[in-house]
Simulated scan of single mutants.
Amino acid sequence: MTVPLGRLTRADTSVWLDGVGRDLLRGGTFARMAALYGVSGAVTGPACLAWPINSTQQYDRELAQCAASGVTAEDALRSLIACNARWACDVLRPLHQASAGMDGWVSVGMDPRPAHDALHTVAEAHAVRQLVGRPNLVVEIPATNAGLQAMRTCLAEGIGVHATRVFSPSRLLRVHEAFQAGLEQAVRAGRGPASAAAFASFAVGHLDQAADVFLARVGTARAERLRGQIAIATARLAHERWQSLAHTGLRAERLLWHVFTVPRRDPAHPRNPAHDDARRAESLSLPGTITLLPEATLRALASHGPGADHVLLGRFPAAREVMDEAAALGLDVEAVAETLARRSLAAAVAGWAELADTVDAAMNGELVRPPAHVQ
């Protein structure tokens, strides 16, 4: 029996699990969660490796093998990412086959450094697909200008794409245009629209945090009333626009809500991050969309059931009113989105470099881990 996830279950919203690493894959934990909660997709990548490599021995044997074979630290890092992605793909492969390719996808994060180089991004996508070797794989590509070009090429060549770091409706529209162009090229090449999947994630949680910081600076009662509503309103208007786009008869790309936020301390507004993420998820429980949840939020939704109706649930005019009021206070969502995209990509690049250094240290026997009781 599948555990209901509040309003998401009733709204026919698909659920993907974020952060699927070795800790969830080993012992069948992810497989059990997929069956119990109806999880139909997964996201994995370099972020799933940092803590296990720094603090546990989960990957020591593989890293020792990589060191013995003389591969570079970055090649070893790619190998570990590919192994986790392959494992997750195998767990979801039966669902992928049973749904004729609609569900059961695994999104894998790649080296973020080529994000402004379309050719390099496409080459990385080909390399990752070959390493994983599973049909239900999509590669994550940041929605930079070069990334949009890479998405078109990948889809045209039969590689599934998950567009990431999308923070505004205007950028989402450009992603849609890139998807349609790539799928049309695939059809002309005789591949057919089902040869590759296309997903676009809208980063609701990060936009919510950034907007709340601005509203806190404004400090008025009017601004306070808008806290926690800007990103949801923006996302709902983006969804309205997404639905209105004319499709060409190809398999339509799917919209994915990224509700996760990085926990922040705010003494004036103490909140449980999992509860905040759950509220966003339920507020965006729109049929045909996908909600990407970290494990804590998934369990929170299953434990607490549906929350109170959100003011914006099912009301596009209310979303427009919120955005008009925010604009009157001086909030430029497009400018905030551009800043978020830039900072998010810079953080990913820095994280990749740091992780590669950690892998190198582990391969050379130079990694110092904390004592076992600290882990």
Rank of each mutant, 00 (worst) to 15 (best):
A348T: 00
G314K: 07
A328R: 12
L340C: 07
A328Q: 12
S344Y: 04
E354C: 12
G314Q: 14
V333P: 10
L331E: 10
W352Q: 07
A341Y: 04
L329A: 11
S344A: 15
F316T: 12
E321P: 02
E354Y: 06
S344H: 07
D309K: 10
L331Y: 10
D309P: 11
L331Q: 07
A341G: 14
D332H: 04
L329W: 08
R342P: 09
A308T: 05
V322M: 04
A308I: 03
P317C: 12
L331P: 09
D357G: 03
A341I: 04
V333H: 06
L313P: 04
G314P: 13
V311I: 12
A326K: 03
G307H: 07
D332V: 00
L345Y: 01
V359F: 00
G351W: 08
A350L: 10
L313I: 04
V336I: 12
A353I: 05
E338T: 02
A319I: 08
A328D: 11
A353S: 10
G351N: 14
D332Q: 02
A356D: 09
V336Y: 10
L340N: 06
V322W: 03
S344E: 08
L355G: 06
E334Q: 02
V359M: 00
W352E: 09
G351D: 12
A328P: 06
L345S: 01
D309F: 09
G330E: 03
T358R: 00
T339E: 11
G330N: 05
E338W: 05
D324C: 14
G330L: 09
L331N: 06
D332S: 06
D324T: 06
A337E: 10
M323R: 00
A337P: 08
H310R: 04
R342E: 13
R315F: 08
D324Y: 13
V359A: 00
A328S: 09
F316L: 10
V349N: 06
A348P: 01
G314N: 08
G351Y: 05
D332P: 01
A319Y: 02
A337M: 11
E334P: 00
A327G: 11
L312G: 09
V359S: 00
G351V: 04
T339F: 10
V322P: 02
S344G: 15
V333Y: 06
A327F: 04
A346W: 05
A346G: 12
L312I: 08
A346H: 03
L331K: 10
E354N: 07
R343P: 09
L329C: 14
T339R: 14
H310C: 13
E354S: 15
G330H: 07
L329E: 09
V336R: 07
R343D: 15
L340G: 11
A328W: 03
G330Q: 11
D332Y: 02
R320V: 13
A347C: 06
R320G: 12
D357P: 01
M323F: 01
L329Q: 05
R342I: 02
E334H: 02
E334G: 01
A350Q: 05
V336P: 11
A326N: 05
A327M: 05
E354W: 11
D309C: 14
V336N: 07
P306Q: 13
A346V: 03
E325V: 11
D332R: 04
L329K: 04
G330Y: 05
D309Q: 11
S344M: 15
E321H: 13
L345V: 00
R343V: 13
M323A: 02
D309S: 13
A328L: 12
E334I: 01
A341P: 08
R315Q: 12
W352S: 12
A308V: 04
